[in-house]
Design a protein around this nucleic acid. Structure first.
Lengths: 114, 114
DNA sequence: TGGTTATATTTCTATTTGGTAATACTTTGG
DNA sequence: CCAAAGTATTACCAAATAGAAATATAACCA
């Protein structure tokens, strides 16, 4: 699984990583701050950061000894664009769902009658 | 990893599963049709379908012996809403990225000069 | 310089995932 | 009813992931 889109969705498929994104949404945070905010070991956090970075979801700056972690809009853009592309099918899917549910109810009623 | 959002993103983090969603975007497909379209064994496809179903991305109808697979808007809605929530930080992140890149270039120039 | 802080990397382990092959189940058509 | 089609489930394997602990690296400061 090495395509960028898969990497990005996989990176988003973890609560700790989404929490990190949430924590840096309004401004950069140091790794140490992220370790304190999430109860996980420092190597654990660094590993998650690597996954997020390779997914294009974060960027690291270098400020003195610290490496503040920023949101990177590119990964979110990639994932959002994919989902947006399918949004045009959502309404149609809703309609078809309605039809499906109606049909299932009908069948259930029919079976109930037997 | 058992929360719905993680399940949905994980389901999207696979090219075969995204291909399946693409194939049913404009209308339901039988499992057999999906097996033919993706070169993977039938159990392989069924396994992917199970992942997609548990992620709220597909629904299965029952028509005679076949089980046509439909898009389910709920999973896409869930993932899309999460990403949308972060969209408001994107512009800000772009601005910060510009600042970051400027700073990095500045430092590179400085280092180059030495 | 040497000590300390901040972060990354390595190593190891348990769990999960993606795949195939074999088998079971279910429904319908003859 | 029974044979076959359509699909699901089971059993198994290889590879990837998530986590902790230990160690290495890098930059600042006294």
């Amino acid at each position: 699984m090495s395509d960028p889109l898969s990497r990005t969705f996989l990176a988003l498929a973890d609560p700790t990583r989404r929490a990190i994104l949430s924590q840096i949404a309004e401004g950069a945070q140091s790794v140490t701050a992220l370790v304190a905010a999430n109860r996980l070991s420092q190597p654990g956090i660094s590993k998650h950061l690597k996954v997020l970075e390779e997914a294009g979801l974060i960027r690291r700056e270098r400020v003195s000894r610290t490496r503040p972690v920023h949101l990177d809009p590119r990964g979110l853009q990639l994932a959002g664009a994919w989902i947006d592309h399918y949004r045009k099918y959502w309404e149609g899917a809703f309609d078809r769902m309605d039809a499906l549910i109606a049909r299932l109810n009908e069948e259930a009623a029919k079976n109930g009658r037997q």
